[in-house]
């Protein structure tokens, strides 16, 4: 059961991958599709493992991620 949830502002993501590296539960990855700017945005492919720690959002240079904690 997920303890957190992440939403992605896909069109602002530059595919840098810093969040993928920062996620302690490795729930994020770079998606296969392109956003309108030509970057492959990040996606949460293991949402059930998210703990809502917001490490991903803290390191995101483009304020792409919003993080929710689920109680």
């Amino acid at each position: 059961m997920a303890k957190g949830r992440v939403t992605v502002r896909e069109e602002f993501c530059k595919s840098c991958g810093l969040c993928v590296e920062a996620c302690p539960k490795k729930t994020l990855r770079i998606a296969d599709h392109l956003n309108p700017k030509g970057h492959r945005p990040v996606e949460q492919f293991k949402p059930d493992d998210c703990v809502g720690c917001a490490m991903c959002a803290r390191i995101c240079p483009d304020v792409v991620l919003t993080v929710y904690k689920i109680d």
Binding site: A54, A57, R58, K69
Partner: peptide
């Protein structure tokens, strides 16, 4: 079950 935003813009 409730959801709180912990990090946003």
């Amino acid at each position: 079950m409730s959801e709180t935003q912990v990090f946003g813009m």
